[in-house]
């Protein structure tokens, strides 16, 4: 969503629209995480009045989708693909292969056993 997006590009490295969008989601989630957790606490706490808990539920549901962590998808830092991301390197499978063969990933070697 454009209202969340930073006015100036704050990413280095490979950039495309999807990466910018995902990055925006991450930042928005970070901003609102405490609020979400507080609401979640109120919802889970059975000792609070039912009314307050229901309201907290509503409020959590009305929060913007970008404040939700499930919207975040790990993307390849070097190529932007969203599938088969190796988390240790934040790379997609092909980028990982290329960089590993080029010796850019410390300690990664071709294996055979």
């Amino acid at each position: 969503m454009s209202m969340f997006r930073s006015k100036k590009l704050d990413l280095g490295g490979f950039v495309n629209g999807k990466i910018i969008r995902d990055h925006t989601k991450r930042k928005v989630f970070e901003q609102h995480e405490a609020e979400r957790q507080a609401l979640r606490y109120v919802i889970r706490n059975t000792s609070l009045p039912q009314r307050a808990r229901a309201q907290a539920q509503l409020q959590l549901a009305t929060m913007h989708a970008y404040t939700r962590s499930t919207q975040i998808k790990n993307r390849c830092v070097a190529g932007g693909t969203a599938r088969f991301i190796i988390r240790d390197f934040r790379l997609g499978r092909f980028q990982f292969r290329e960089q590993a063969l080029a010796g850019e990933l410390p300690g990664v070697r071709k294996a055979s056993w």
Binding site: M3, A52, Q59, M63, H64
Partner: peptide, 23 residues
């Protein structure tokens, strides 16, 4: 505490981001 939870901003149903959107 329960009164406060009933009365204060928790009662408002407006989304916390509505003000961001209106900007």
């Amino acid at each position: 505490l329960t009164d406060m939870l009933d009365k204060n901003h928790l009662v408002t149903t407006k989304s916390p981001l509505s003000e961001v959107g209106s900007r």
